[in-house]
Design a protein around this nucleic acid. Structure first.
Lengths: 219, 219
DNA sequence: TTGGCGACTGAATGGCGATTCAGCCGCTTA
DNA sequence: TAAGCGGCTGAATCGCCATTCAGTCGCCAA
């Protein structure tokens, strides 16, 4: 029986190639990955990839766009219903690291390979990344409006600093031989905790509980 | 008159090529940079580069090794004589950003291009980077021993977090079209300040002033 | 003056792998 | 049954550079 829905079939192959590409890029790096490697892993012919993507760069770009879109949607859901900005910071950190943990190969590609060339960092403006980071900047701004975060701190600087911290740690985790050497979740709490204390501005308004951060060691 | 010292002459060409390579890598990216580009900019023949370096990768690696060595020596000098760990954190951040500002092309190469492939992050262990970061970890450890930094924080996690924060901000600065859009020095103070407060374990010793950080917009 | 040497040159080589495209296959429709 | 078509194939092409190496140049020592 032929595929009931050709569009569905099409989508399948598109995803099949992307997933294969994530694995191959993670394993060999973008430049050392051959189109034929991706094709073989996806179980299609080399030429088929060009029916779905303009070229090799386009494959990488598409991975970024599609996966970041999922990430952004996910973090918004994770933050839903939380009102305390400080708690939001902690949830953001945990969410970020959980994604890294659950999608190791993807994390590797995004972290290492996307920083790979001018193509992706100079010419190409990663809107999706900004959108993701913007979620954090918004948390900071809300915290400042609510009086729990010092108003003299620039939300954008904090956003970059926080993301940089998470990203660097994730990078080390990804690169580490023994992935179990340290727990990303505990680390998320440590980082969130340092930022929370560092950003805290004044006595929290009565009613919004202080949400004392837990540290890694603390029980 | 022939060069008095042949070794000196040799060194000159070695450096000439490295400096040219830094410019070219920064401009076009490692993979799009051609050996002939470097040669032309250095004013030597293509083949000459192979008299001084094993291959193209070796040129990049050498840039990293040599320049990181200078960076490490420099930060140690900058920290000399400072005893307050918190002050050291601030000086570290300022030093880091000053280097980025003063050696824009180099910063671009180290930040963007060194993250470029498995070659440099998986197979190659950047000892020099660890040595540089280790300086920060030592500051933290000393602060913990002196009782000014909470002892429950892992120095290595802090080290990565702090470096990640600095690095991400530097990256944004390097990528920014308008380099004068924000001052790296003011930003250094903001980041250092957040970390200092975040790591602080007890009432600051009398005498160490809180040093309110400036924000980007603030003049 | 000649021979030899080290530093340097830059055109030619060679390999690699992204991209192309002529054609196949299986299904649908007339 | 035949013609048409969309999706797919994968071997051949082709451009791009990193790397090589035969040869040049200037200098010195014999």
């Amino acid at each position: 029986m032929p595929p009931v829905d050709p569009a569905r079939e099409r989508t399948d192959k598109h995803d099949l190639i992307l997933d294969a590409a994530i694995d191959v890029f993670a394993e060999k790096g973008f430049h050392h990955a051959r189109i034929s490697d991706i094709a073989r892993r996806a179980g299609v012919a080399d030429g088929t990839i060009y029916l779905y993507f303009r070229n090799k760069d386009d494959v990488l770009l598409t991975i970024f766009e599609e996966k970041m879109g999922i990430l952004i949607a996910g973090v918004r859901v994770a933050l839903e219903g939380i009102t305390d900005p400080m708690q939001k910071v902690r949830v953001f950190a945990r969410y970020h690291f959980r994604q890294v943990e659950d999608h190791r190969a993807l994390a590797e590609v995004l972290q290492i390979e996307l920083r790979l060339s001018n193509k992706f960092l100079k010419e190409y403006r990663p809107e999706k990344l900004w959108e993701y980071l913007g979620v954090f900047a918004t948390i900071v701004r809300e915290g400042q409006e609510g009086g729990v975060i010092r108003p003299d701190l620039d939300p954008f600087v904090l956003m970059w600093a926080f993301f940089g911290a998470l990203d660097e740690i994730a990078m080390q985790w990804v690169l580490a031989k023994r992935r179990d050497k340290f727990s990303l979740e505990a680390t998320a709490d440590t980082v969130a905790d340092v930022f929370i204390r560092g950003m805290a501005g004044m006595e929290p308004t009565a009613g919004s509980e202080p949400s004392r951060p837990r540290t890694v060691e603390e029980t």
